[in-house]
Amino acid sequence: MNKDLDIITSRLALLFKPTSRTRYWLVIANDPYDYTYNVFFNSQRANERLRSMPLHKLANYNLNDLENLLKALRQQTKLTIEFIGFTGQVWPQSQKIIQKRRQGLE
């Protein structure tokens, strides 16, 4: 888990360049076919198209480990984290719903 966190934060540091009128956020995508979680860094300037850069693929397909990783990641960065493909699933430790509604292209 710490190795995954180090990879994500190091790649995030290379891509994150704060500029005005730009929105930055992370996306965690559930891939049930490959049994992996994918982490993306998204940025979008005002009146421009969305840029999505893949950061890392988490091969450990366990929600408990993902929850622990996200706790550590939230301590490292203050970026918003969106979830795709987690509709109806609940975090094992906190018992909160991960994603309430499906996204547009799910």
Rank of each mutant, 00 (worst) to 15 (best):
Y61I: 11
N62D: 15
F83C: 04
N68H: 12
T87K: 15
L70H: 06
G88P: 02
A59F: 06
L58T: 02
L50M: 14
F86D: 01
N68Q: 15
L79H: 10
N60G: 05
R51F: 11
S52C: 10
V90F: 05
L73N: 01
D65K: 12
K78Q: 15
R49Q: 14
G88E: 03
N47Q: 12
L63P: 00
K71C: 12
R45F: 10
L66C: 05
A72E: 11
S52R: 13
A59W: 10
L73I: 07
L70S: 03
Y61G: 09
D65Y: 10
T87D: 08
R74A: 07
Q89Y: 04
N47G: 06
Y61D: 11
T77N: 11
R51K: 15
I84V: 15
R51S: 11
V90N: 07
F86E: 01
T77I: 08
L63V: 06
N60R: 14
N47F: 13
G88K: 04
M53V: 13
I81V: 14
E67L: 08
R51V: 11
P92W: 05
L58D: 02
P54A: 04
L50R: 10
L55H: 04
L55E: 03
V90I: 14
L70G: 02
L58W: 02
A46K: 14
F86Y: 03
H56G: 00
L69R: 03
D65A: 14
R51M: 12
W91R: 05
E67P: 06
E48C: 13
A46P: 01
R45G: 08
I84P: 01
W91M: 06
